[in-house]
Amino acid sequence: MGYMEDASDHAIIERVLSGDVEQYARLVDRHYDRCARIAVRMLGNREDAEEAIQDAFVRAFRALDSYENRERFQAWLTRILVNRCRTILERTRRRETVFTDHDHHALDLIAAPVDTSDAWPDLERALDSLSAEQREAVVLRYADDLTYEEMARITGTGTSALKMRVQRAFARLRILLGEVQHV
């Protein structure tokens, strides 16, 4: 098994598809941290992020026979993850709407930050100030070091629109960070 430590994603996928399912753990280990960076920053809490990451890895596994080698596994997996994050965001938005109408106390519990010991409280507040689209664009651009072309393939959005979202996010952050510095 030792030689698989340095095996390419493609080689590991071949092993998994040939029936060695345990090899998939290597892909999980290899890509988990990157997925966590994206999901936690897109969703804003660890619980939902864990759900999105789990779903993404399992869905990727189930669809592994349709993975096309012309695309990096990393990009393919990220696309699945982003779609899961979007679905969870939509579900959360609906849930919060329901609670807003009926139970303000419950909404406070849901909206409360899960990890108050995070080293980047200002980052979370800053990301919260962005729209979902701006937040997604900023996270993909800077958490995963993607080019706009790669982001476009993952999100299905044109590069011009993505650049505009990042620019608008910067404008919003500039205001917010200015406010923070004067507190």
């Binding site: 399912v21 345990e22 998939y24 753990a25 999980v28 280990d29 988990y32 941290d33 966590a36 960076r37 936690v40 920053r41 660890r46 992020a49 864990e50 990451i53 789990q54 890895f57 399992v58 596994f61 080293a119 980047w120 980052l123 900023v138 996270v139 800077y142 958490a143 070091d145």
Partner: peptide, 20 residues
Amino acid sequence: ALRSNVARNPHAAARIMRRV
């Protein structure tokens, strides 16, 4: 800020593999 890793849930990989 965004490239700093978030703490890994020690049970996460095992949970994923159970579902896999």
